Structure formats: structure tokens, C-alpha cells
Computed example of a mutant assay.
Amino acid sequence: MSEEKPKLSGNARRKMRSAARLYAVQALFQMEHSGQDARAVAREFLDHRFGAEIDEGVEMAEGDIDLFRQIIDETVNWQAKVDQMTDRAIVAKWKIDRIDPTLRALFRAAGAEMVATDTPPKVVIVEYVDIARSFYPEGREAKFVNAVLDHMAREARPEAF
């Protein structure tokens, strides 16, 4: 007899999807700094982070693992396009390779979601601005991330605006 998994509330599912996005940003950062490929880093995250409780009694679910993998895979597949979109969105004379590596990983993950998934751009923006706040609680970077992602979303999915 198989054990039935309890149904999760919408709020619990959102938390798990948010955690999958956060892990994807962390994994992309790790890929850049370690030189490991996507498969090795994803395996490490799946072995050591997923399955851990993210809230009392709430563990990462299979769909969230799928979202994590999708973001990593699509970021690798679309990195050149996403980097170009990011460069166009940064109004200063900075290119993506000159910005903070955490922000670079965040822009790549968010850009891949905008380009390769059907997640509404506004959801992507809100989710990744929240992730920026978790890394940069002062708030200045979150405002920067919001502006850059808004520009990227309008380029990637103009029909949504």
C-alpha cells in the first residue's frame, strides 16, 4: 500500500516554488564560481538541499525539483540571449560580466524563466525581487533588480504588458 502525500495549501506550494527559484540562483552562482557543469551542481543540490524542511513539516516536492531543474537547464540553453537582454536592461555602461555574480545568477535564472516558460512575467519579477531582498536586505539592489527585470520582461514577453 503506497503512502499518500498530504495535499499542500496554495501558500505551501508557493513557498516551495520560491525555494526552488532561490536554489536555482544559488546553483547558478556555484556553477560560475566552481566551474562545475549544470548536471554536477544540480545533483549536489538535489542530494543535499531538496528534501530538507523549508517550513515546519513542509519539504520540497517533486514539482519543485522539476522547476529547479527547468530553470537550470533553460538558463544554460538561453544564457547568451538572457545575457544580451540583461545588458540592454542595464542603463549604465555596465555589462553583465561586470555586475555582482549573485545578481548575474539571479538575472540569468529570471531571464530563462521569462524566455522559456509560461510563468507570467509579473510573477517572475516578484519572485526574483524577493530573492534579491534575501541576499541584499538593504533594499537598493532589490530596486535595481525590479527595474532590470521589468525591462527584460517587456523585451521577452511584450504581449504580457
Results as ranks from 00 to 15, higher is better:
Met1Gln: 11
Ser2Val: 10
Ser2Gly: 07
Ser2Gln: 14
Ser9Lys: 03
Asn11Gln: 13
Arg14Lys: 13
Met16Thr: 05
Ala20Pro: 01
Ala27Tyr: 04
Glu32Ser: 03
Ala38Phe: 05
Arg39Cys: 07
Arg39Ala: 15
Arg43Asp: 15
Glu44Phe: 12
Phe45Asn: 01
Phe45Thr: 04
Phe45Val: 13
Leu46Asn: 00
Phe50Pro: 05
Ala52Asn: 02
Ile54Arg: 03
Asp55Val: 00
Ala61Thr: 13
Gly63Val: 12
Gly63Glu: 11
Ile65Thr: 14
Asp66Thr: 09
Arg69Ile: 15
Ile71Arg: 10
Asp73Ile: 15
Glu74Met: 01
Val76Glu: 01
Asn77Ala: 15
Trp78Pro: 00
Ala80Cys: 07
Lys81His: 12
Asp87Glu: 15
Lys93Leu: 06
Trp94Glu: 09
Asp97Trp: 09
Asp100Met: 01
Leu103Glu: 06
Arg104Tyr: 02
Leu106Asn: 06
Leu106Arg: 12
Leu106Ile: 08
Phe107Asn: 05
Arg108His: 06
Arg108Ala: 06
Ala109Pro: 00
Ala112Phe: 02
Ala112Trp: 01
Glu113Thr: 07
Ala116Lys: 07
Asp118Leu: 08
Thr119Ala: 03
Val123Gln: 14
Val124Gln: 14
Tyr128Gln: 12
Asp130Leu: 09
Ala132Phe: 03
Glu138Phe: 08
Glu138Thr: 02
Ala147Ser: 05
Leu149Lys: 06
Ala156Phe: 10
Glu159Lys: 04
